[in-house]
Amino acid sequence: MEIVGRILMVEDDPKDVELTLTALEDYHLANEVIVTRDGEEALDYLFCRGKYAARPSELPAVMLLDLKLPKVDGLEVLRQVKSDDRLKLLPVVVLTSSREEKDLVSSYRLGVNAYVVKPVDFHEFVNAIKELGVFWAVINAAPPGSVRK
């Protein structure tokens, strides 16, 4: 059995969540996915605050981050993660509908590890998710302190 890292997904759209989970399920990557529905919840999870105060403080193997989020938007989440000494080791993949160069440039400026535009075509979408999941949760050697099972 391969070692699969835990995936933290930050996505407000339940349909996108379901499609993503379906895609990951096909490759047996879905059982270690944590879904947070807005920027604030994602930060609570990462900083072990609020309803996540009691969780063990290991890092996930990767965070899949949407940019357009309620309350705290994706770029702000990215900024806080990359300016925290412990969290900056966490690989962050922006997974968004936006092809805007502005978003791309801002994300890379803030130190994102990858930027993926969600394809409209379902096959491409499933492929993209699968490759992301396989690469970051399986192939990539996660930084020390992240969860493996």
Partner: peptide, 20 residues
């Protein structure tokens, strides 16, 4: 920008769920 982001999402869902 909204077109880019918000219009593509429902479209992806239509395509995605139809495919499923």
């Amino acid at each position: 920008y909204s077109v880019s982001h918000d219009l593509r999402a429902p479209l992806r869902h239509v395509a995605g769920f139809a495919e499923l």
